[in-house]
């Protein structure tokens, strides 16, 4: 069972090479002066390879902000982020973009797909942007696991919400990224489709060793993860390993959420 690793900012440790993503002294401040909002107020966190982690916390605690900074979608105010051995905060926009399309997968809560492209094109889009051809065997495998074979020619508006999320997951998994980030991927789904999506994420971790980091509000969704990281007021507020819906609920209640 992976162990959470805390580090001192700036310290380079051999033992961390096992982490897929880690952040040190991560701060994100919106605005300035009197009205400054410290969305992240110094976060040190690491996510091991092949681990399924859920990030939880009260609304406004900085979960989404943390994920955006870890995924190179947004620039941190201070601190550093490593994806494997690559330090993200020093990269130029082009380098970040290339990194996103090759080494990071995304699943958002909604609006995951480009309306003009059919499902197949949506799935291979990041690889095509990188100028790569998907491995057909792997493509068939991913599509089969997500049950999308019959849906590949459909445009997003011809798919149900659950199907759209599955297409997004297929897209995230296809390039075999270092890590898949998911921000409330089941937020818009009913409990059955939600369970389906979570099961698929879970099995991709189990069967192919994919690293997954997921933000969620739902304790039963968090129960699919190996570990839960708790956030409050832009700081780490504890963590749970092998969470269950009940233990997550307890921990959240302790945070006052």
């Amino acid at each position: 069972m992976p162990v959470p690793v805390m580090t001192v900012p700036g310290e380079q440790s051999e033992s961390l090479s096992g982490a897929a993503v880690r952040a040190a002294g991560l701060r994100k401040t919106y605005g300035g002066g009197e009205t400054a909002v410290h969305a992240l107020a110094g976060v040190d966190v690491a996510f091991a390879r092949g681990e399924f982690t859920a990030i939880m916390g009260p609304s406004g605690s900085g979960k989404s902000t943390l994920m955006h900074c870890l995924a190179g979608l947004d620039a941190a105010t201070a601190g550093q982020v490593w994806l494997g051995d690559t330090e993200l905060t020093s990269l130029r926009d082009d380098q970040l973009t290339a990194l996103r399309r090759q080494r990071i997968g995304f699943v958002f809560q909604a609006f995951n797909l480009l309306p003009v492209l059919p499902a197949r094109e949506n799935i291979v889009l990041p690889m095509q942007l990188a100028g790569q051809r998907p491995d057909p065997v792997w493509f068939d495998d991913v599509v089969a696991r997500l049950g999308l074979r019959e849906r590949l020619g459909h445009r997003p508006h011809e798919l149900s919400g659950g199907q759209q999320q599955r297409v997004a997951i297929a897209r995230a998994l296809l390039p075999r990224p270092d890590v898949v980030f998911a921000d409330e991927p089941t937020g818009n789904l009913d409990s059955r489709s939600g369970a389906e999506v979570l099961g698929l994420l879970r099995s991709s971790v189990k069967e192919t060793g994919q690293t997954v980091v997921m933000v969620t509000h739902d304790p039963s969704a968090a129960a699919y993860a190996d570990r839960v990281v708790l956030l409050a007021d832009g700081r780490l507020a504890g963590e749970l390993t092998d969470p269950t819906a009940a233990s997550v609920l307890d921990a959240l209640r302790d945070l006052g959420a």
Binding site: D94, A98, R101, R171
Partner: peptide, 10 residues
């Protein structure tokens, strides 16, 4: 979304 998925500015 396109930018997130790896479309460069250019």
């Amino acid at each position: 979304l396109l930018r997130a998925l790896g479309l460069t500015r250019t």
